[in-house]
Design a protein around this nucleic acid. Structure first.
Lengths: 346, 346
DNA sequence: CTGAAAGCGCTTACAG
DNA sequence: CTGAAAGCGCTTACAG
């Protein structure tokens, strides 16, 4: 079983030099065969390939990229919020698809909304000399990445735009998607529409709130502070806030949630009060089984995989030499009616 | 904004040599400071640190690992089924946690049940000279990895054991977990329990079926072929098969599903027939919102993050020099009662 | 405590 | 078409 590697001591790997002497040719000839350069005698090439097989030789990319003029490592860095959440996981997978097709590997990392982790992991990626970085940013300023950019590492931001840095980015149309969904509720006759949103420090949370505000303003409706809650971080907090809104003298007839865990919190509260079929609900972000709940939960869905793919395409375009102006790509959200968003005011 | 990097031409990075001349010291002194070796004059060290800052210097890990005796790249490879599915994503994240704490980066990849992709991506990891590989395998034999192992790359398998290769692995107790859940149904008085399972080629699918068989045998109950369906690949297929079982003269009073998407297919079918509160259901693998369905879906849950963590720990133990015998770690599943599994036969 | 030389495994730039 | 020498950015092994 180990015969093929018997020529080398255990624990060490064949080098190009080993292949060269096994094949009885020079180092350079092996390099030519490995890199599929033209003009190699077929007989020599054969001997080289046999030796490669024999020794289980694997070219050392670190040595290659150290010497190559372009210095490419065939690696990109992908830093997202949390690789275990479906949003980040889907983006990573979409990027991986594009990268693998080009023979490029992906170094992944989770930032957990920590600016400190963002600094540390971008520095680490930089030490690995990745060819480029795709980043769903966590920090309030990306000035610190300017030296990396100048040194030649292209950055593409996803989900949130860069701040104090000029770089390509791919975003969802958070504001428009929200405004159009809220308009639907208004069209059904709802006048009192609650809003629950995530941390105001997050660009996406602010944009979604602005979409809500925009839709109400367009109908000349005032914002009722009793119905608006920002900085809601958990499912439980969302439930509690809805409990409170339902106890108002003039409770909402519809609710819009700016994030899927908040949507689920609202579903729990409405169920608890037996109101899930009386009060309308639309959530931003789709989630699994939303269609199996009763009623099905209507959502503004993001094209998550498309966001990842576009980001990867932008990055590889830059690596292919595209020097044109920085791009902002906006990926459209789409509304999925499932029942909860189609309930009229009662 | 770019002043700090002004000393170097755009598109190039500072090297240790640049830092050395900026600080007016030798290369070796810079190396000492970067690697935090003792016995460096504090004044020189300061000058070096200033120059590092000034030039935005980042040590080049590729060059470092090329020269270092241990050859470590501070990178591990993680190849899973599909980085976008919650199971793989959770494992990846758990591994990342352990790796990051040690300053090690993670190269991730999806195998999509393709043996060819497994070969290609392990070879790619090998070319990147990762320090070790964690693998949820897709191929029917892992003999081809023996040369990599001999060359010194440790492998840890997750979710499924290695075949024709001796390597550490971390598994769930698929068989026991299933047997114990089916026993619960038997204890409730169920005699006709349907089983829906995934592709028989998958080790986990076979184990879960064996658990079902074991539980029935222990009660001297015969397996009824009309109630057992293996090689069920999709939610829709599961629904259709349940439709068929329900039309039998002697339909099942309970169903066990070997995978979460099959569980959801069964829920759909039972609902369609209005039987979700009449026929018991237990699924292998938890899924989001299982508790929000009516009735809640009882499941055999895996400790997914723990599987990832254990795998990472095994791998780093090997990298730390552990030469003891190959280990099999079995992580216990646990039953979560939510209602659907507690329905008695009618 | 500091540094000059050699070498990791490749590719580059030249010769022949 | 093939190969010997130099060098990528570091660490190692020695001197001083």
């Amino acid at each position: 079983m180990f015969d093929e590697a018997a020529d080398l001591p255990t624990g060490s790997r064949a080098t190009m030099k080993d292949v060269a002497s096994a094949a009885g040719v020079s180092l350079k000839t092996v390099s030519r065969v490995i890199n599929q350069e033209a003009n190699v005698n077929e007989q020599l090439a054969r001997r080289v390939r046999d030796a490669v097989q024999q020794l289980s030789y694997r070219p050392n990319l670190k040595a290659r990229s150290l010497r190559r003029l372009d210095g490419r490592s065939s690696t990109i860095g992908v830093l997202l919020e949390d690789l275990s959440n479906p949003f980040s996981a889907t983006i990573l997978r979409a990027i991986e698809e594009v990268a693998t097709a080009r023979g490029v590997s992906v170094l992944g990392g989770s930032l957990d909304e920590s600016p400190e982790r963002e600094r540390r992991l971008t520095a680490s990626m930089s030490s690995h000399r990745v060819d480029g970085i795709i980043l769903a940013p966590a920090s309030p300023s990306h000035e610190f990445l300017a030296p990396e950019q100048v040194a030649g590492t292209p950055f593409v931001f996803v989900d949130r735009p860069p701040i104090k840095l000029n770089a390509d980015h791919v975003l969802s149309d958070n504001r428009d998607g929200t405004a159009r969904a809220v308009e639907r509720l208004l069209d059904l006759g709802h006048q009192r529409i609650g809003f629950l949103g995530d941390d105001e420090a997050l660009w996406t949370a602010r944009e979604r709130y602005l979409g809500y505000e925009e839709a109400l303003r367009a109908r000349a409706l005032a914002i009722d502070d009793d119905l608006v809650h920002l900085n809601v971080h958990s499912m439980a907090a969302a439930s509690t806030l809805v409990d409170g809104m339902l106890a108002l003298d003039d409770p909402p007839t519809a609710i819009f949630t700016g994030r899927n865990i908040l949507t689920i919190g609202v579903v729990r509260s409405l169920r608890h009060h037996g109101l899930e079929s009386r009060i309308a609900l639309i959530g931003f972000d789709d989630f699994p089984l939303a269609d199996l709940l009763v009623p099905g939960v209507s959502v503004v869905a993001q094209e998550v995989a498309l966001i990842g793919r576009r980001a990867a395409e932008l990055l590889f375009n830059r690596l292919d030499g595209d020097r044109s102006a920085t791009q902002r790509v906006v990926v459209s959200t789409h509304f999925i009616p499932r029942g909860s968003g189609e309930i009229p005011p009662s």
